[in-house]
Amino acid sequence: MSAFNLNEDQQDCLQELINVAMGQASDQLARYLDTFVDLRVPSIEQVDASSLSITLNDKTLASAIVSQGFFGYEGIRGEALLVYQSQDSLQIADLLGYEPGELSEEEQLIDISSILTTTFLNVFASQIDNQMSYSAPRLLSASQNPLVEHVENLLFHWDLALKVKITYRVTDFSFNCDMILLIPESAISNIKSVLDRILEEF
């Protein structure tokens, strides 16, 4: 077992923190978007560079991917990837309350991605007494299957990553999207010390 693996308590603690953040984020989103938002129990797994692209690849073709970096105190940082299927991007204008044609589809994708990422991570950060900053979201590609390509480019920077997958569903608008948080090896040990501190309090 790698030294970077989370132990059972750490895993449980992280899962619970994420669940609570998910709940509060979906509440905030529901109020903002004025519709019921379902966030499904995320999967947390440790992946190494070589298998990461394979685990991401099991999904059907993504029509668009938006990437947004995040960084907080205590060396907590990573990258959020928002993965959309083509039928999802058609719903965004409705969901955000835009007039048809008011915004380009790309801009809508960027907008909703930023909202989903920052809402969730802000709540998550506040639970661990942290505060997040964000880089501007970037559209990686609006066609083909660039997820694996993008991830392969990332692999130069890390050997191991923590992968957290969260699925958003807005049933009234038949809108779904996956948020994948990738936390690089160097940040994992920082997260582990934060988790240990929380666990010590109990």
Binding site: Q28, L29, R31, Y32, L96, G97, Y98, S104, E106, E107, I110, D111, S114, I115, T118, T119, N122, Y134, A136, P137, R138, L139
Partner: peptide
């Protein structure tokens, strides 16, 4: 709409030259 999001969600929002 953009600033409302910032106020309501208390989170940053972005606008890139690419869009």
């Amino acid at each position: 709409r953009k600033l409302n999001g910032v106020k309501q969600l208390n989170s940053p929002s972005f606008c890139s030259w690419e869009q």
